[in-house]
Write a protein that binds this DNA or RNA. Structure first.
Lengths: 300, 300
DNA sequence: TCCATTCTCTGACTTTAGTCAGAGAATGGA
DNA sequence: TCCATTCTCTGACTAAAGTCAGAGAATGGA
């Protein structure tokens, strides 16, 4: 890692820490301890399970429990067992809680305004653009990609979301039964892998590859959640799958797609895929692609 | 302030707070409480007065004192009265203190590396560029500009630095005695104003304007410290002075400059100044400029 | 010389933040 | 039905962070 980049990041950390970090705590934590305020915020309008709160904030279970008791005493939240599993308890904001949270929301706005206010129009535009870029790239850095069984709940969640999206985007909807590959069996081991990307613990993308004897391996079910687009995640998943193909000794890799999925096609093209004649009769496919792997471009 | 910009900033605050703020404390405060670590860091290689430490970190005097006692007990710092004023005390790092501070330094590097490490080359370049931009603009927002007497210590510091820089940049050096305007008298009230820009309390830029009866007002001694360039500060100082000229009823404003000062000339041109024939016999001037103020462009 | 002011320090506090061990209810499978 | 496991909670802690009211030494004018 070069010295210059490191110094750049350090200077950034310092400026931002001073200008935002300090202000942040002073702003948000005026009438309520930061711990409680963070919790109140994290509960959200919809309510949340206690264990999810714990995970998200990375706090000890006893500590969270105590914080919740305190918020409950002030009449800001109610805590009730879930109906399905009465061990798990769900926290919900009361009307008073919502009000408090709205105050935090307002404060957060004020902090943002404070930062923008001393700049002119042009500088503001540049600042927000740069912030977006930093935001995107920092977020991209926290996305983890993991091999998972296609039957794992997170895999299933991705596939459900994927199919739902296809249903919306394809003219005439989408019916998984008409599509060629039955996922669970074929994309998992031993004849392939399925990878899932997670952001803050939430599954936000997936993709699978199937290897079958002498046939070139075959990529399917590539998907990235709307909330995680623009992070280069598609490219990363693709690279992951291609890497697997390379390690398995494959020389080419194939995939097919529907013309409604424009971003996907753009991604494949820019990743080195070239359109080829149909190599199967997938019901929803309009375009078939192939990529040669033996030129070391799998990591691109 | 538009909703979109505010949301952008809020999202940024959130991401950065999670990714940097949290990591920062976990990193730096492992074997020593954060308070002590921050203090140790802020003392710096040169040493610092206790009251400056307090101001900079915004802490209670009793608290700082206690922290210092603790660092002293561990043999990391020494605290001694200043020679001039024995009420104020100066903190200095011992050899052991320096060592401990170097550890913090190293940690700060590691944190930066951690952020960069999950990105590829291209993303890294983009991230550091965007960080620089955010850094610059956030810093620009904290620069304050104030009218000051040209004799004020901060004004004097700026002028000294300005002359020193001219001495370096002009062929044959610079001698204030050969230059037209004797600053102190003419740029201050009642016949003009002198403005000084400060960043974190340090003077980092200045400029003065002189009004003399029916003659167009005349801008001189525009300077921005090297450390504060790229913040749009020159433009801001210029606008400040032009504003003053407008309020005084002036229709045009004049200035002259030396051809060694390329950035200054570029600034004047882009701010609407046009080159005119010499209107005085300033010894160091090569170019003379004038700007009409009656088109409302003074704030540009 | 006196007196208000400045600066740092100490003692006596409070509040936050967080850890750890274990209790008790609910659940899921053997 | 039994038993291991999961989830949340309580009690009993500790350490860090910070506040407040003075005390005592220096200092700078009047």
């Amino acid at each position: 890692m070069d010295r210059e980049s490191i110094d750049r990041v350090r200077r950034f950390n310092r400026t931002v820490g001073e200008r935002i970090g300090v202000l942040h705590d002073h702003f948000l934590g005026t009438d309520r301890p930061v711990g409680e305020a963070r919790l109140l915020w994290e509960i959200g309008e919809e309510g949340r399970d206690v264990r999810r709160l714990r995970d998200r904030l990375g706090l000890d279970s006893g500590y969270v429990s105590r914080l919740l008791r305190s918020l409950e005493r002030d009449g800001l939240v109610t805590v009730e067992p879930q109906t399905h599993d009465r061990r798990v308890r769900t926290v919900r904001l009361t009307a008073a809680g919502r009000k408090e949270r709205a105050v935090l929301d307002r404060r957060s706005d004020e902090l943002a305004e404070l930062i923008l206010t001393s700049l002119n129009e042009k500088q503001r535009t540049r600042l927000t653009a740069a912030m977006e870029e930093v935001d995107r790239l920092l977020t991209a850095g926290t996305v983890s990609v993991e091999q998972l069984d296609p039957g794992h709940p997170d895999s299933a969640a991705c596939l459900r979301a994927y199919f739902a999206e296809l249903g919306e985007r394809f003219e005439g909807g989408f019916d998984a039964a008409l599509s060629a590959v039955p996922d669970a069996g074929v994309l998992g081991p031993p004849h392939g892998v399925f990878v899932v990307a997670r952001l803050h613990g939430e599954p936000v993308g997936c993709g699978g590859i199937h290897l079958d004897g002498d046939e070139p391996p075959y990529i399917k079910r590539m998907w990235v959640a709307k909330s995680a687009r623009g992070l280069g995640l598609g490219r990363r998943l693709l690279a992951e799958l291609e890497g697997y193909a390379v390690r398995s000794g494959a020389r080419t890799v194939r995939l097919e797609t529907n013309s409604a999925l424009r971003e996907a096609m753009a991604l494949y093209r820019s990743a080195g895929y070239e359109e080829v004649p149909a190599f199967n009769d997938e019901h929803y496919a309009h375009h078939w692609f192939e990529k040669r792997l033996d030129d070391g471009a799998a990591t691109a």
